[in-house]
Amino acid sequence: MVLIEERQEGQVAQSRDVVLSVRDVTVGFGDTLVLDGLSLDVYRGEILGFVGASGAGKSVLLRTILGLVRKSSGTIHLLGQDLDAATDEERLRVDMHQGVLFQHGALFSALTVLENIQVPMREYLDLPRALMDELAYLKLELVGLPRNAATKYPSELSGGMIKRAALARALALDPDIVFLDEPTSGLDPIGAAEFDELVGKLRDTMGLTVYMVTHDLDSLLTACDRIAVLGGKRVLVEGTVEDMLACDDPWVKAYFRGKRARQIDRSARG
């Protein structure tokens, strides 16, 4: 643990730009605490993989950052803005520069894919209709959906297409940071690999910062720059895959060195 903290300080010294900073955040429902004094930093331009047991509170942390769940204490700075102290205008600036892909896509079921992508544009940009269509088609292409998907309703799409369409909506305003909640769950391995590749490509071309909640070991290995593990209501350990393999925590050990993870182990050891 000491080692990790030193590493982090080293990074701060290099003055890497912190996009999201979560400090001592505590969240509970009724009497039960789900998160207790959790702290986490996400740096500009990185893909952070966030793992943890099912029910550990990964989605709760995400929803807390997004302001959908109330925290009982702690502070969250997103894009340099203290979210509790933000005025309406500042909050709006943050909303404009973030994109979210919910666990099940959360596309608006009454709207077509194209209209879904245009919802944020309509809200924030005063553009003529033709230009907005043009932009939306660009986003579709960006996430690898065919043009004929534009007029389909979410109920007519496959799981993988829903995730891609939701990502297109999240990218509608060219955000600085996107939050992805289990983007590859429910996708076949090939689709999942393509999605990881897509996220990596977007980061490289758009300078996107990606916060990705995931259970997918392959994603963690191939797409993520850094991994943070949630356990015991706080971040147990954060760092690279090597740091994870070196960690002594039983859950982390089981996760990264269990039967399903043998592949990583071998490749990491060379």
């Binding site: 997004l66 302001g67 909303d95 919910f102 959360a106 608006f108 919802v119 809200e123 924030y124």
Partner: peptide
């Protein structure tokens, strides 16, 4: 209710609507 169930209401909020 079904929009609430599928997190569409949360998506609206996050977009700022």
């Amino acid at each position: 209710g079904s929009m609430k169930m599928r997190e569409e209401v949360d998506a609206l909020t996050v977009i700022g609507l």
